[in-house]
């Protein structure tokens, strides 16, 4: 299964969840948010949301900015 995570193509086994991706990203204790195909995936659904072929996933955090 291929999908795009933060602009980079990834190849992973089917059944991978959003939570698996977040764990892989090592966001640590930082707050983060996830979007799939331009729609927010609420935090409460990360563990049960399975990534599909060709999905576009974004994982974001807050950083310094003006």
């Amino acid at each position: 299964m291929q999908f795009v995570l933060n602009g980079e193509t990834q190849d992973m086994s089917s059944g991978t969840t959003i939570q698996d991706l977040v764990n892989m990203m090592e966001v640590g204790t930082r707050r983060y948010a996830v979007e799939r195909n331009e729609e927010i995936v609420p935090r409460s659904l990360h563990a049960q949301t399975i990534v599909n072929d060709n999905d576009q996933i974004e994982v974001v955090v807050a950083i310094g900015g003006g």
Binding site: N6, M25, E26, A62, I63, G66
Partner: peptide
Amino acid sequence: VTVAIRRTNIGQNPDEPNLLDILPPEKYTI
């Protein structure tokens, strides 16, 4: 206090300091 929203990178250091930790919500409106 303003902050920006950006992609996090795969394999970034998980111990990297968190900006929001220095901006406690009881003190600042983000």
